[in-house]
């Protein structure tokens, strides 16, 4: 360390971080051993490389992304509706919303997928009598069952996230909107929700990432998403671990891309908070506290 100019005769000696260094070294050695174990283990890495970009695996990746997107859109739409219903003055709407969240948060997603997929057992045909009807098995394809199952249960979680976001906005914002002649609905849509987005986006990003992985459940109802497509390969060539590694790599890639996307979405909705990133104190609050 360079000695800094000082008017006192004393010299400050930096603390010797011996144990920090030893601990760091131990962890590095352990990591190296772990990597070596995988390297020398019975993994035929050539199979990983060979299957990483195979058409059937890529189709699985695409199907997983499509399902994530569709289920999240359905989840967010249902979530916003349920959140607004929950905060309504109408007791029927409020309780229907509470019941929806209770029901679809209360059972495992996998079970819900199986229920949707087997809906034909309860309702062999669906439709409006006299107008039209169809056989349920024809309509309840793996895609539709997974879409409904994942989207509807996602809506139950999103409802709570959206409600928390709306509650986080000062009631004065609504009143200010009303005072310049807005209807309550307009104040909600143009004043409250855009601000609530700042609170809503990080957990929704989290849930979207969760959904990428949750789509793997759809493999049990024959939807050919990523996990299902690697399973189809290893049923033939028995390279189980190699293909699971392929799937892991693709899940990691998709999640990484989404995490980066989330940064940009958050930046967009933090307008007016001085471009602070997530987790930074909002300047608005600071000035209000000072006042």
């Amino acid at each position: 360390m360079r000695e800094r100019a000082s008017s006192t005769p004393f010299v400050i000696v930096p603390r010797r971080k011996t144990w920090t260094k030893i601990l760091g070294l131990v962890v590095i050695v352990l990591l190296a051993l772990l990597i070596r174990a995988f390297w020398v283990g019975d993994i035929a890495w050539s199979y990983v490389g060979a299957n990483l970009f195979s058409p059937s695996v890529l189709r699985g990746v695409v199907n997983s992304i499509i399902m994530t997107f569709c289920a999240m859109v359905l989840g967010i739409v249902l979530g916003v509706i349920a959140a607004v219903m929950r905060m309504s003055d109408n007791p029927v709407l409020r309780n229907v919303s509470i019941g929806y969240v209770w029901l679809f948060r209360g059972t495992p997603a996998l079970l819900q997928l199986l229920l949707w997929f087997n809906l034909a057992l309860i309702f062999p045909t669906m439709g409006i009598p006299g107008l039209f009807s169809f056989r349920t098995v024809d309509v309840m394809t793996p895609f539709v069952a997974a879409f409904l199952g994942l989207g509807i249960q996602q809506g139950a979680y999103t409802a709570e996230v959206v409600r928390a976001g709306i509650l986080s906005i000062d009631k004065g914002q609504t009143e200010a909107g009303l005072s310049i002649g807005m209807t309550p609905l307009r104040a909600m849509l143009t004043i409250v929700l855009p601000q609530a987005m700042r609170v809503i986006v990080p957990p929704i990003g989290n849930e979207t990432i969760g959904m990428v992985k949750l789509t793997s459940l759809a493999s049990v109802i024959q939807y050919s998403e990523l996990l299902r497509s690697v399973e189809d390969v290893y049923y033939v060539n028995s390279r189980v671990i190699e293909l699971l590694i392929v799937a892991s790599i693709w899940y990691m890639v998709v999640v990484t891309v989404l995490s980066i996307g989330q940064i940009f979405v958050e930046r967009y909705f933090s307008k007016g908070w001085g471009g602070h990133g997530p987790g930074q104190p909002a300047r608005q609050t600071l000035t209000e506290e000072a006042a």
């Binding site: 200010a176 909107g177 005072s179 601000q195 700042r198 007016g272 908070w273 608005q284």
Partner: peptide, 14 residues
Amino acid sequence: GMVFQRFHLFPHKT
């Protein structure tokens, strides 16, 4: 027109 004690400007708008 109403002016509030705590201003209540819309923080996401200029």
